[in-house]
Simulated assay, not measured.
Amino acid sequence: MDRKARAVWRGTGKDGGGELTSASGVLSATPYSFKTRFENEPGTNPEELIAAAHAGCFSMALAFQLQGAGFPPEELQTEAVVTLEPDGQGGFHISRSALTLKAKVPGVDKAKFDELAGLAEKTCPVSRVLNAEITLNATLA
């Protein structure tokens, strides 16, 4: 399975800008720039997209883990906070992705929930591709 997205950039790194488009059409000429990345101007940025991908991937992986263990979830709310830091060599690197989960899962005890959440965090494909510290704070409602 292959998934595609395209970036178009015009101009310099700081003063230029671009658009991101995904094959599905969910992103369609979505603006991104230095200001959307470092100054919170409206638009998106690569780290926000990685955070969305990580939250979505983890939530789906956990849903499969819970279902397989006989505990279909009612709702999984996951927030991912991706941290971009200077790398000390004039560039930047993603150092961390912090997952915060609030889950409604009838019938599961805390120990089993924590076990399955930890397994989902380690096995979701986005977690596996990130070369960064990944933390998980999971709450079972």
Rank of each mutant, 00 (worst) to 15 (best):
M1I: 13
R3H: 15
R6F: 03
V8C: 07
W9D: 12
R10N: 15
G11L: 06
G11F: 04
T12Q: 13
K14N: 06
K14L: 08
D15Y: 00
G17I: 00
G17E: 06
G18F: 05
L20D: 00
T21V: 04
S22A: 13
S24R: 09
S24M: 04
S24E: 10
L27I: 03
S28G: 12
S28P: 12
P31Q: 09
Y32T: 11
K35I: 00
K35G: 01
K35C: 00
R37E: 00
N40G: 01
E41M: 04
T44D: 10
N45A: 05
P46I: 02
A51E: 09
A53R: 08
A55P: 14
A55D: 14
G56N: 07
G56E: 10
C57G: 08
F58Q: 06
F58E: 03
S59Y: 11
A61N: 05
L62Y: 07
A63F: 01
Q65K: 09
Q65S: 06
L66S: 01
L66D: 05
Q67K: 14
G68A: 03
A69K: 00
G70N: 00
G70P: 02
F71E: 07
P72G: 06
E74C: 07
Q77L: 04
T78N: 13
A80H: 10
T83V: 06
L84D: 09
L84P: 12
D87C: 08
D87H: 05
Q89K: 11
Q89V: 14
G91S: 11
F92V: 10
H93W: 08
R96C: 13
S97L: 01
A98P: 00
T100E: 00
L101I: 05
K102W: 13
K102F: 04
P106R: 09
P106L: 04
P106H: 10
G107Y: 02
V108A: 14
K110R: 15
K110V: 14
D114E: 14
E115Q: 15
E115C: 14
E115I: 11
L116T: 08
L116A: 08
G118R: 03
G118L: 10
T123P: 11
T123W: 04
C124H: 10
P125M: 15
V129W: 01
N131F: 01
A132P: 12
A132N: 05
E133A: 13
E133W: 03
E133Y: 02
I134T: 05
I134C: 01
T135L: 04
L136H: 04
N137A: 15
A141R: 05
A141I: 07
